[in-house]
């Protein structure tokens, strides 16, 4: 990820960026990975606020919103820090899932670091259970996921597969849609 960092600095001014590199050096490189996933975690957390789950998914107003994470990588760890926080009144629960594990209690499924051959199965399962699927796997939305996190010009952006969302009876806020790149399956 050093490339991203340098580019971001170039967006501002070159001099402070160079200073950052020279002084900050090796220590900062070690922390790069979780930094990126923290942004992604925050995005997942915020995104949940702009999405209306189909009626009947939550047992009540105070019912927990269960975020399930599948796959390797630091994504799950980044989500862990949101455990207990509320999203539109629902306290957040984070669960680490193994591929093939029953997803019955999940509302939001974060997919990360999963090989593409397993992806179709996960998505299929998620679609059956009306789970909101988010992943940083490239072209996730085109592959049938609902929201895909992509890197555009050094920033994390997202793509929304509106059709997939509608199929799973999710209502996504227009404000969120405004920020997102709308993609279709197979494009």
């Amino acid at each position: 990820m050093p490339a991203i960092r340098i580019r971001r600095c170039r967006l501002g001014l070159m001099l402070p960026a160079l200073l950052c590199l020279l002084l900050g050096g090796a220590g900062r490189l070690l922390a790069e990975a979780p930094q990126e996933y923290q942004v992604k975690g925050a995005m997942v957390f915020n995104m949940a606020k702009y999405i209306e789950w189909p009626t009947g998914v939550f047992s009540g107003s105070g019912a927990p919103l269960v975020v399930c994470s599948i796959g390797r990588g630091p994504f799950t760890g980044a989500l862990e820090q949101y455990r207990g926080k509320t999203v539109l009144g629902h306290p957040l629960q984070v669960r680490r899932m193994q591929p093939g594990e029953e997803l019955g209690e999940c509302h939001l499924l974060v997919v990360s670091g999963v090989e593409k051959r397993y992806l179709a199965g996960i998505l299929d399962q998620a679609r059956k259970r009306s789970l909101l699927t988010v992943s940083d796997i490239p072209d996730f939305a085109r592959l049938g996921g609902i929201i895909g996190l992509v890197e555009v010009e050094g920033r994390v952006r997202f793509e929304i597969n509106v059709k997939a969302a509608q199929q799973s009876r999710f209502k996504i806020s227009s404000q969120l849609l405004k920020l997102a790149r709308i993609v279709r399956e197979g494009e």
Binding site: V39, M43, N46, M47, K49, Y50, R155, R157, F158, S173, Q175, L176, K178, L179
Partner: peptide
Amino acid sequence: NSAPALAFNDPKP
């Protein structure tokens, strides 16, 4: 109106 932009750190919108 700019809350999502802030939330997702996107100044342009």
